[in-house]
């Protein structure tokens, strides 16, 4: 079976006064439905790798393949289209848009994609919020929610367009133990029950242990996989 994500000799160097190598010669194959945690000390290139997998950044060398399709040489707009349809992001901070209600935040990616009618979009947003047991919070503004609730809204937003791949950058980094457990369980459920490919950067050892596989980075290189 085609890997959901594959990297071939991916290297990313920041061209600054003194060039900084973020990641070096990364070769990974992540199968569909696999839950992979990425760990490593600070500055080991975990987040940089995630941004490369998420097509937010472009490798200096090598290529990233999504669903077997190479993304090398694609225009920014084409990368955006791939992100819109196939990828969902969850960050350490919820990054919800403060002007919009919780439900509207979840609706935005669907409206951008424009594949569903406005009514269907509303229904799907409500379903997603229900799924994460925050259905009754839909009309509230993000700042009226607790940290854990906000992170669940962010996950619901990442799932809005039913992507195949969820990329998470320290999704529990800002949460207390109880909420961390909830969020971790959600990711496990997404991989096991919904068959989604999940790649999560984490410091949280419980979180890392819950994954099918752990990729450990040191100095921008894969130390253990």
């Amino acid at each position: 079976m085609e890997p959901a994500i594959e990297t071939r000799h991916v290297t990313r160097i920041l061209q600054e006064a003194v060039p900084v190598t973020l990641v070096k010669d990364i070769n990974l194959k992540i199968a569909p439905g696999e839950f992979v945690s990425v760990t490593g000390p600070s500055g080991s290139g975990k987040s940089s790798l995630l941004y490369l997998l998420g097509l937010l950044d472009v490798p200096t060398e090598g290529e990233v393949l999504i669903d077997g399709q190479s993304t090398a040489g694609l225009e920014r707009a084409e990368l955006a289209a791939l992100r819109l349809e196939k990828l969902g992001f969850v960050f350490q901070f919820h990054f919800l848009l403060p002007e919009f209600s919780v439900a509207q935040n979840v609706m935005l990616p669907m409206q951008r994609l424009g594949r569903l009618s406005e009514k269907e979009i509303k229904e799907r947003a409500a379903e997603l919020l229900d799924y994460f047991e925050i259905g009754e919070q839909g009309t509230k503004r993000p700042d009226q929610l607790s940290g854990g609730q906000r992170q669940r809204v962010a996950i619901a937003r990442a799932l809005a367009n039913n992507p195949k791949i969820i990329l998470a950058d320290e999704p529990t980094g800002n949460l207390d133990t109880k909420n961390s457990d909830i969020v971790r369980d959600i990711f496990v459920r997404l991989a096991r029950d919904e068959g989604m490919t999940v790649v999560a950067v984490t410091h949280d050892t419980d979180f890392a242990d819950a994954a099918d596989r752990n990729v450990h980075l040191v100095d921008g290189m894969v130390a253990r996989s």
Partner: peptide, 16 residues
Amino acid sequence: RRDIAILMSMGFRARD
């Protein structure tokens, strides 16, 4: 800027 970044990560194009 943060909202712009997040919209882009969601799949909003530069021209959006």
